[in-house]
């Protein structure tokens, strides 16, 4: 035991030259990766601008970086951009929380009740394999042309997969860990709260990461069809706006939400 302690302290005090060299190599490699990433991005944008400028690329369909920039600036100035981004963000967050809440709650209920899980299993699999974007028109007829439809569409994209994945993770907890709780005098509730949930925190978090993307896609699909505002609505709104917003949706929004969530998880 004492030997282990000494090892730890010697590691943190004097760093050998080999260790320094290793760290230096690591830093260099990280920097090189970053540089390549930036070069690819700049290259892509320049190529796009040049080909659009000389008419190689149909600039009506594909627009061009400079025009995208102009649109962003003018939309930003009029406050329109923030408004629509905000709407989509809000709808995404609401769907995201609903998906996670429903997913975890239903997975727990299915884990708790074996017969119920067997009864519902085929239905869940069918619902999960349905093309959810094709259901959106059904939701419009059912719920009307409003935000409710968008949220329901987004939730339907992610919720069934979440339930199935989490339920399977819950079920695959080692049998002996459950036995341990029973040997310590615990009941099913103790098993749930002291073993099943805590041992599945990593899988819940990785499911949440997947759900951010899925909720966003679901919301945008919903907005294509049923919205009066939001990025999905903008994409439909005009071909000029099309490319610009497409980029925003694809890169900026999920990226910032991912970063926010990662920050949250690290705390």
């Amino acid at each position: 035991m004492s030997r282990k302690n000494r090892n730890v302290s010697s590691e943190s005090l004097d760093i050998s030259t080999a260790q320094l060299a290793f760290i230096r190599r690591h830093v260099l490699r990280t920097r090189r990766i970053r540089i390549y990433q930036i070069v690819i991005l700049i290259g892509f944008i320049s190529l796009w601008e040049v080909t659009a400028h000389y008419g190689i690329l149909n600039s009506f369909v594909f627009s061009s970086p400079s025009r995208v920039m102009k649109t962003i600036i003018s939309m930003g100035a009029s406050g329109q951009l923030f408004y629509h981004t905000g709407i989509t963000l809000l709808e995404t967050l609401v769907s995201f929380f609903l998906v996670n809440f429903l997913g975890i709650a239903v997975a727990v209920i299915l884990w708790w009740n074996y017969s119920l899980s067997k009864v519902l299993e085929p239905y869940l699999i069918v619902l999960n394999s349905l093309p959810k974007s094709a259901l959106a028109p059904v939701f419009i007829v059912w719920l009307g042309n409003n935000v409710k439809t968008i949220i329901v569409a987004a939730v339907s994209v992610a919720v069934f997969g979440t339930i199935i994945n989490l339920y399977n993770d819950f079920k695959s907890v080692e049998e002996d860990r459950i036995k341990l709780i029973h040997t310590l005098g615990g009941n099913k509730r103790d098993v749930l709260f002291r073993v099943i949930i805590p041992s599945n925190i990593p899988s819940i978090i990785s499911q949440m990461k997947v759900n951010i993307g899925l909720s966003l896609v679901g919301v945008v699909i919903g907005e294509f069809l049923a919205a009066k505002a939001g990025l999905g609505y903008l994409i439909i709104y005009g071909s000029q706006v099309f490319t610009c917003v497409y980029i925003l949706v694809l890169f900026r929004l999920p990226l910032s939400i991912y970063l926010c969530l990662n920050r949250l998880i690290e705390i």
């Binding site: 080692e174 002996d176 860990r177 036995k179 341990l180 040997t183 002291r194 073993v195 805590p198 041992s199 925190i201």
Partner: peptide
Amino acid sequence: GYMLQKDHLLDW
């Protein structure tokens, strides 16, 4: 008191 085959300490 029952000690199982493995210690089954909870790693979190």
